[in-house]
Amino acid sequence: MEFRTASSPHNHVRTSVTTVMVRVLLGLVPGMIAWVYFFGTGLIVHLALALTTAYLAELALLAIRRKAIGLFLSDGSAAVTACLLVLALPPMAPWWISVTGTLFAIVVAKQLYGGLGFNPFNPAMAGYAMLLVSFPREMTIWTAPLSLAPQTLSFVDTVKAIFVQTLPDNITVDAVTMATPLDILKTELALEKTVAAITQTSPLFGSMSGIGWEWINGAFLLGGLWLIYKRVVSWHVPGSMLVSLGLISLIAHLIAPEQYVSPLFHLLSGATMLGAFFIATDPVTAPTTPRGRIVFGASIGALVFVIRSYGGYPDAVAFAVLLMNMVTPTLDYYTQPRVYGHKR
């Protein structure tokens, strides 16, 4: 009798790239729920826009590049990119913000570099950076936390606001938008106010960081820990990034508490937790060696502190990640583990 042949190993785990991506998406769910709870349904509208754009762009580019469309569309990586990008956008941004951002992420940052596995930069963060430098006004108007806003928008009003930039007659723009806590901190500190004065006067600050932000970060932390438990990501990048950001901000806070906010504020503000567990851990653009990952994560933590404290933008995760993406090959090269039987 004749048999089929193949190269060993003949067995295989059931985990596939799709499994990995679906788990990442599941890990995002708690954070998304918290997000909608505090900032309204704009996120859902933008998610729908970004996912549609991402898959249409992916389909078109795969067809042009003559790749196996079904195989690559089902890997789930486009959905992850779309979700991560949307989670970095203002919830009430105009519709074309998420569409252009996603197009840039998928077409330029991912497919033009060779598609899945070949992009040197995190596509979602590349898309975000492009939007931030191109459309700074639209990208910095943030939604007020629902609990603070004098008036709230219904879902239909939200859709209208996103698509045609009109609000109901009785609601003003100022009623539904506010700066982010990180933004206020930066501008007020520049006016030589102390941290204590800023956090006490502005209603945006909660007990640990900004209202809403502390819970959103907590929810992303929860989802991220689940990813580590499921072994989708290793602890190295998030662990070293959070420890580094926490330590540096603690030292700064102890030396000059008037100028530097507490480490807890840093850890639970902006995109810290999202960045630590979901963005910096993107396997394609992060180092693969354990030591490389620790250096990578720690450097991102340090860069986040530096950019937040001294840079031109209020939040820093995207730029910190993109900067470290550049040195990923170098880190991989210099942090190779000692091979079995080689000299210690």
């Binding site: 596939s16 990995v20 195989l71 598609g115 596995g117 396997p283 693969t288 060696t289 000692r338 079995y340």
Partner: peptide
């Protein structure tokens, strides 16, 4: 064995390699 996708550099292989290779 199904079709292979590009390497996503997840590092699962280096975690499993008993020779500690990459």
């Amino acid at each position: 064995r199904g079709p292979a996708l590009p390497c996503i550099r997840c590092g699962a292989c280096s975690d499993a390699c008993p020779a500690r290779l990459l």
